[in-house]
Design a protein around this nucleic acid. Sequence first.
RNA 1: GUCCCCGUCGUCUAGCCUGGCCAAGGACACCAGCCUUUCACGCUGGCGACACGGGUUCAAAUCCCGUCGGGGACGCCA
Length: 492
Amino acid sequence: MVSDKPVRVRFAPSPTGSLHIGGARTALFNWLFARHFGGKFILRIDDTDESRSSDESTRSIYELLEWLGLTWDEGPIAGGDCGSYIQSERQNLYQEYVHMLLDSGDAYCCYCTADELKQMRENAFAEGRQPHYAGICRHLTEQDRSRLNAAGRKPTVRLKISDSAIIVRDLVQGDVTFEADALDDFIIVKSNGYPLYNFTSAIDDHEMGISHVIRGKDHLSNTPKQILICHALGFELPVFAHLPLVLGSSKGEKLSKRRHGDLVAVGKYREDGYLPEAMINFLVRLGWSYDDKSEIFSLDELVEKFNVERIGRSEGVFDINKLQWLNKTYIMNLDLTERTNAVLPFLRKSGLLETDVTKDCQARLEKIVESVGDRMTTLADIADYGYFFTDNFDYDPRAIKKWWKGGPAAILQGLREVLKSIEVFEMENIETAMWYYLDEKKIKRIRGMQPLRIALTGVSGGPGLFDIIALLGREKVVERLDRAINYIQTAN
RNA sequence: GUCCCCGUCGUCUAGCCUGGCCAAGGACACCAGCCUUUCACGCUGGCGACACGGGUUCAAAUCCCGUCGGGGACGCCA
């Protein structure tokens, strides 16, 4: 079902908010499709509803698509041969087509008011009918129209549709039939002269040579309308593929900004320390699978392996657990330098790092990141290891309760002396000296280690203690031990 | 309400088209154990699903019908 035309697909968000999970997934599937077939991925801004669009949203969409690595071949910024890629800048083109339809008689002016229409719709609902426009203005005479125009009535423009069923041939959904009585003469131009989405979309898809329309299934019922427009204008149809929707919870609701707030915003995940690669991997597995075992895919692999045939038809639920697991996996797979660099902005954001990173500092940073190892789920988790950067930390009450209960001041005191007297303050020496001391004193290792850990970090978990001690340096270690011993003695 | 679509472990899914290889496989999550100075990683094991009811068939998760459940759409929004 892949046509012989060159593959050209588009992502056409309306800039009414920042990029959300569902939109990002649609963009990704389009992008992968284009890359897989060596075609073009086009970005178009569908901002025909000027009142709901904002520049801020538009910028955020650009920014986040770039962050995800979904760069576009044609569109705003990138340019291209198909004119402006922002619909609000294409009004003249739409007007031409409106006139064409009006002249050919395939469209007509409708003088029914919004209120009248609303009333008809409510009546239809009340009577259990599909609310359809009855075609009242379809048979207006030239005189009727002049009279109404003279009276200052501003008409909408409706497409005059035929009474045959429309079959949407869809790569994912199969053939979906819309019976003729499910369709009506719908409005293509508002009474203020601005064209509506279904109209501009059909025109731009044609004008931009779009071969495949891949979008969310919430657009499936728009498709017969767009097909009707194509028919009226003599356009060749693109191939359609409607993706199952992403639901917000097991209760099942389309993921939406209104209902799920920040949970849907891709930008939030960037801020929270998710890697774009993890996000991509997460998104692609929501509705698409390669086989019965593969979970991790690089972008290159996806380009090679992606196919529409393996997109499922049932809707998926956004599961943060899976995203977190993927993110952790991707962080783990970063090499030390990459991981350190990735973590840097988050250190700054949490105020743990203020100065510029000098060479020495970079080396120490890498050691810290190395010791933290695979403990981060998100990059922002680096803030949990703030004790490497600041003395200003509290003792975790639960940790204290468990490990400082017996008042291990004596043990800490002993350890303090051991640590203070180590000649070369390096990991191996520290380890040897401490084990020797603890074993000699017949103190269970864990009875010494955990209280010490809490004294140095405030918490009961984290990187290897010897790493921490070496990284902190003798001076800090002794200081923190004094503070802890003092705390314990005061508390008792 | 009307139209359209969907329904396999809590979640993402493999299997469905081309019935038997499925006493249904993988992954996330969860639980337990091992490893270990802690946490995390890793390893091992556990829990856990064909929505329901009919039919067709020697045989159904797979085909057909119905029911129920869920979602989407029904706009001078996109």
